[in-house]
Design a protein around this nucleic acid. Sequence first.
DNA 1: GACGAAACTTTTGTATACAATAAGCCCGCC
DNA 2: GGCGGGCTTATTGTATACAAAAGTTTCGTC
Lengths: 244, 244
Amino acid sequence: MNNAWHTEMLAEGRVSDRRIGDRDIVDKVRRAVLMQRLPPGTKLPEVTLGEVFGVSRSVVRKALTRLASEHVIDQRPNQVARVRAPSIEETRETFDARRLVEGEVVALLAGRLPAEPLAALAEQARGEVSAFERGDEPARIEHSLTLHHLLAEHSPNRVLGAMLTDLVLRTSIVIALYKRAGLASCYLEGDHSRLLTHLEAGDAEAARGDIHDHLNGLEALLDLSPREARIDLKSILGRAPEQA
Amino acid sequence: MNNAWHTEMLAEGRVSDRRIGDRDIVDKVRRAVLMQRLPPGTKLPEVTLGEVFGVSRSVVRKALTRLASEHVIDQRPNQVARVRAPSIEETRETFDARRLVEGEVVALLAGRLPAEPLAALAEQARGEVSAFERGDEPARIEHSLTLHHLLAEHSPNRVLGAMLTDLVLRTSIVIALYKRAGLASCYLEGDHSRLLTHLEAGDAEAARGDIHDHLNGLEALLDLSPREARIDLKSILGRAPEQA
DNA sequence: GACGAAACTTTTGTATACAATAAGCCCGCC
DNA sequence: GGCGGGCTTATTGTATACAAAAGTTTCGTC
């Protein structure tokens, strides 16, 4: 069958020599899912992963548990773990949740951000623009992700920050999944720099508005029409016998 | 040392005969933490738990991982898992986060709640009142928890619902932890029934306001004065060598 | 040729053994 | 008597073996 992905997995970075733990597996699988190298529904048997990474099932299992708690994979009892395929409905809900949480985070952040993190954010924004202009989509995604990750990290409210980290990952996954066919990249010019301006100026409500607009714009770039529910249909009829 | 808690653990319910998995361990430990039978800082060695529940370390480890992801315990590498002691700052942040999320959930819920779940909510509210009146604090907590749990479950937005479930647990833990000394119970008369009225009437913003007031009231019943930081001090100086 | 059952294979669940690390302890030294 | 080094012990990290369950194939029957 589809036995080609281990080579891709290994290509993700040198694996064999370094001391590798469950953390590395989590990072690499997460990244591969994000980059669509591991499409939804892909089976991830424990022994195979263990062979690829040169560790035993124990550590693989721990990694899979973590990935499941991050909503990257689905883990049902007595069944092989599979890359998750969030439904269209869940996609909408994830965006709604992120609007709420990230809006609040940037509102809290407005005007309270020291110069150093602000510079780091600006650098990511610049990096994203440049990556977009030279057509390097993976790099652009990386910069965008890092930017939002930084926002989460610097959230004055760490509980909300942790939630935002989770939501950023989940939205990124569904963006990769539901991106409109012809679209080269889900990029909205100026959104990030506008946000940073308002953050620096200390305008909390403007920053919240920026986040809302940004996420609305992103969501609009997706193909979430229910008539095109082939993905859902396929994953539910073909693979998932029950869904509570 | 403190080897008495396994008996308490077992008293939590019949354990030996039934088929017990990691889920049961998670439930029982969570409950014990909630009821303050397992105070913060309590060590939870894997072998001991395994002996108590009659399972091997494998399943205990899985249970501990779950508990850590629920923020019930702390799991640092090469160290025994311990019951978590959220700081005062984290307590405030948890309340803030819950205000945001639960407020949104009830706003979404207002007017869209069918009769059946509404009745279930009302029953929990009544149960809470009656438990309070007869001075049965554990039962009162149980009813209150179930009520908020039901709100989370019926959230139209399941992503927010799952987040709320987590936040309800965490706030309950810190309430138990920081409850003012003399206080018999953290109960605010009428709050829940008022919320239900507004939910049924479909007044989203009133419901959101009810949640805000309720959580503000609850937080006010806690002793979060930084001068009384003995709990933090004790747990940090006495047990935790490093804190990232 | 289609259907169904039984063996067979694959894969996960659990227990256990061994290695590595951290904590506690004792003893010698200053 | 206090302090530090090394030893002992307790506990977690990892690998592996076996059991149970799910999935797959094959074969016989209708």
